[in-house]
Amino acid sequence: MSQCAIEVKGLTKRYGLLVAVDHINFCVRDGEIFGFLGPNGAGKTTTVRMLCGLTRITEGKAYIYGHDVVGEHMFVKSLIGVVPDISNLYYELSCWDNLLFMGEMHGLSKSERIRRAEELLKLFGLWSRRNVLFKNLSKGLKRRLTIAAALMHNPKVLFLDEPTIGLDVMGKRVIWRIVRELNSRGITIFLTTHNIYEAFRLCSRVAIINHGKIVALDTPARLKKLISAEEVLEIEFYPSNPPVNELKRIKGIVDVRYSGSTVRLVVSDPLKALEGLIRYARMNGYSLNMVSLRSADAEEVFINIVGGYSAG
């Protein structure tokens, strides 16, 4: 088993009576992209902030490559790079000056700062904008520069807190490409997100957190198999979709959801459900325009595991 880049034991955070993070345990392996997935308010950002020293730990322990994040916080900060959920670099400094400042504060030599800043600006497609003030960059470019800034000192672990929040599809894809490339260079990545597809697409393992507790932790493929007994029938009825409560009475159907004109039926027994649906359609004057059967997707896995409601 590879070394734990991040190891957390009984990690807890309380704000008065509120338990934001409740005795969680996990190990992020060296070199993996680890996803931390959960609805808003589940405890994702609080966990990251505790690991980075921005929030105090109420109980439990956390280690980065064996170093206690509390007892050795100064050394740990030299091992980690942090990209917060807001792009909070310095507005009145240019891209170049922002990166140089990061290098200065991490103790890089002048030549190393210049070399590294140039390398990162080129890697992130920002070289032509090196003299542009941070405040004048678009949202997507701000995000890129914020990631670049976290990499100035060559950290071994990179914390990405909601890295694609607020970005359009193209912007997200650029960030995903960058994340994969960074990981291919050996950087361990801890990614928090509420975007299920992002987590399942990028991460080698995903921990799902809800109400401060980890409710599942495994590879995306195994998480899908957790509800593998259930598959999804997608059907379009004509002339209109029947009422939900009538469909739910059909044997083999676990759950019914409407998605535009399509009815998505989570089924435990596809054959029984289909027989029941055909019988129902004939008796009530419906016809079936489209029928497709597939395994549960990421969103369905997530909703199944966290119970379909957000925390708090």
Binding site: G53, L54, M74, K77, S78, P84, N88, L89, Y90
Partner: peptide, 14 residues
């Protein structure tokens, strides 16, 4: 106000 003060807390400085 803009959240950039926290950046200083992420550096290995006292």
């Amino acid at each position: 106000k803009v959240g950039s003060f926290e950046r200083l807390l992420l550096f290995p400085v006292s």
